[in-house]
Each structure stands twice: as structure tokens, then as C-alpha cells.
Amino acid sequence: MPDSDRRPHASLRTTGVAFVLVWCTGYIAGALMVAQAAPLTALVWRFGLAALAFGAFAVAAGVAWGDGRARLHSAVTGVLMLALQFGGVYLAFAWGASAGVAALVIGTMPLLVAALAVAGGDERLRASQWGGMALGLAGVALVVADRIDGHTPWPAWLALLGGLVGISVGTLYQKRHASRIDLRAGLALQNAAATLVLLPGAWWLEGLRYADAAGFYLPMLWTVVVNSLGGFALLFVLIQRGAATGVAALFFLMPPVTAVFGVWILGEHLTALKGAGFALAALGVWLATRRATAPV
């Protein structure tokens, strides 16, 4: 492969590593924030502040906000990838789902994205890439096996399935329709749309309940600055430059990397089973993404 071809692939790999590391911190920060606030209220704070920040960046840079169709596509993406995904996950936590159950459900996202992309004619995958997807899912299952219980209520399952559909369909929708607008303007619109969708529930059902304390504000600022401003910027750069299935496969690494962060930050134990799951997930991502950097 010529050097000119290697450089874009190396850049995508570097961006992918940065995305995984940044995204995984959000699970810990989000859990800390939800412990101090109602789930939808926490998301209204996060997405509302992120919308203001991205909007300020877009105005300061004087970027174009696109036509009405482009703005509508960005809003739909925000409802799917932000409001539906995170609303489902945060509500599931509030309704009794464990972190292991949530990670396992959302961890199937790469398989659903791949199936939808193939069915829609967006991409074609080889047998080795399907095998990589299966290995990645098996790795996720090993990592979260000790956190799965049999007491998750059915509303929590439904909420997680809603979150899974949101991020899966949203990834493909972003790739197909919402990548033709400036990143700053698009993310401002997406976060604003998510805020508007979640605000009625946060207001009427939760009374915008949150603790006026550092235990809420510090993780909330982390989710805004690091996860929303940094994580979603990296995610949408990856979606714009790579195949949707290749980007989705990175989510197999989320539970293992989050488990490592849990060892450092929360004092959790990294068992041999989790280590094996980490290795299996990494192998699955390598198989699923090594030739999946561009759609067919």
C-alpha cells in the first residue's frame, strides 16, 4: 500500500482509539451524575449546555448552517443518537437495570448496524467481518458476565432496546443523510433537538430534580466538555470518513475499556475472564474493521 493510502488509515485508527477512550469515560461520569439527578434532567443539562457550546463555536467561526433539509436531518440524528439512545440507557438504570445488562444490550449495536447496512444496500461484509462481529459480541459477554443478573424488570429491557435502536438507526442515518453540514453546526442542532425532546419529560415527570452540589456539577461538566464536545465530534468524524459498520464495531471495545477504567477509578477487580473478553473483543474489532474503512 502506498504511503498516501496508509496515512488516512492510520489517521482513522488514531481517531478510533481516541474515541473509544473518551467515550468510555462517559459511562463512569454518567453514573456519578445520575446518582445526583433524575435521568432525563441530567441529560437536559448535558445536551443543553453542549448545544450552546457547539452553537457558539459555529457562530464564532461563521460557518454555514445548511439548508432546511440539512438542518432537519441533523435534528433527526440528534433525536435518535442522543435523546433515544441515552434516554433509554439512563431510564433503564433508574428502573433497575445493571451496568452489565445495559452493556450487553448496547454491545449488540455493531451487529444490528451491520445487518441494517447490508439490508439497505449501503455496505457488503465478508465472512471474516461477520466473524469479527460475533467474536466482538462474545468478548463483551465475557467482560460483563459477572454483572448480569436475572432481576431486570421488563420496562428496563424495553428502555435499553429503545436505546439500541436509537444508536443503531442513528449511526446509519448520520452516515446517509446528516454528514453534509459543518460539524459544529450539525452537533449544535443535534444537541438542541435532543434537549427539546427530553425537556417535557424532565420537567413534568421529574420536576427537573438534581442535587445542587459538586457531586452533580463536576461529572456533568465532564460529560459536556469531554464526552459531548469531544466524544461526539470524534464519532461523527469517524462516521463521515469510514464505513458505518467499521465505526459501530468500535463499540465492542466499550465494556472492556470501561472495565479497565473501573479498576483505576472505582477500585474494581480485573479478572482473567474480563481479560480474555478484552482480547476477544479486540480481535473481533480488528477482523470487522481491517477492510471496512469505506462503504461499497
Results as ranks from 00 to 15, higher is better:
206 E>C: 07
263 V>N: 11
241 R>V: 08
2 P>E: 06
138 A>P: 14
109 M>C: 11
246 G>P: 11
124 R>C: 05
238 L>G: 08
89 V>K: 06
121 G>F: 08
249 A>N: 07
65 W>Y: 15
84 L>R: 06
92 A>R: 12
119 A>Y: 06
15 T>D: 02
230 G>C: 09
19 F>Y: 08
280 L>T: 11
38 A>H: 12
22 V>M: 00
267 G>A: 13
137 L>W: 07
256 P>H: 12
249 A>F: 12
268 E>Y: 08
192 A>Q: 02
45 W>N: 00
13 R>H: 09
273 L>V: 12
106 I>M: 14
76 V>N: 00
138 A>M: 13
232 F>Y: 14
98 S>G: 08
223 T>Y: 05
143 V>E: 00
70 A>Y: 13
148 I>H: 06
138 A>V: 02
52 L>M: 03
136 G>I: 11
18 A>Q: 12
61 A>E: 14
26 G>Y: 15
150 G>L: 00
204 W>Q: 12
103 A>I: 09
79 V>R: 01
219 P>H: 03
154 W>V: 05
289 T>Q: 09
152 T>W: 05
274 K>M: 10
276 A>H: 07
122 D>C: 06
253 L>A: 15
122 D>A: 06
228 S>E: 01
54 F>K: 11
133 M>Y: 03
34 V>Q: 04
204 W>S: 12
292 A>L: 13
120 G>T: 02
137 L>C: 00
143 V>C: 13
53 A>C: 14
295 P>K: 09
156 A>V: 06
238 L>P: 05
7 R>N: 07
141 A>I: 03
166 G>C: 03
285 V>E: 04
129 Q>K: 10
155 P>R: 00
108 T>W: 10
289 T>R: 14
115 A>I: 15
198 L>W: 07
159 A>H: 10
23 W>K: 01
266 L>D: 12
213 A>N: 05
254 M>V: 12
280 L>R: 10
230 G>S: 04
209 R>V: 04
204 W>H: 14
254 M>C: 05
232 F>P: 01
3 D>N: 09
179 S>P: 09
177 H>S: 10
238 L>H: 15
246 G>C: 11
114 A>W: 07
154 W>A: 04
18 A>W: 01
268 E>F: 13
110 P>I: 13
81 M>F: 13
81 M>C: 09
104 L>F: 15
20 V>K: 04
58 A>V: 06
49 L>A: 03
79 V>N: 03
103 A>P: 11
217 Y>C: 01
236 F>R: 02
29 A>T: 03
236 F>N: 05
291 R>A: 04
254 M>D: 10
126 R>K: 05
8 P>D: 03
134 A>E: 09
277 G>H: 08
130 W>N: 14
44 V>Q: 03
96 G>V: 13
102 A>L: 07
280 L>P: 06
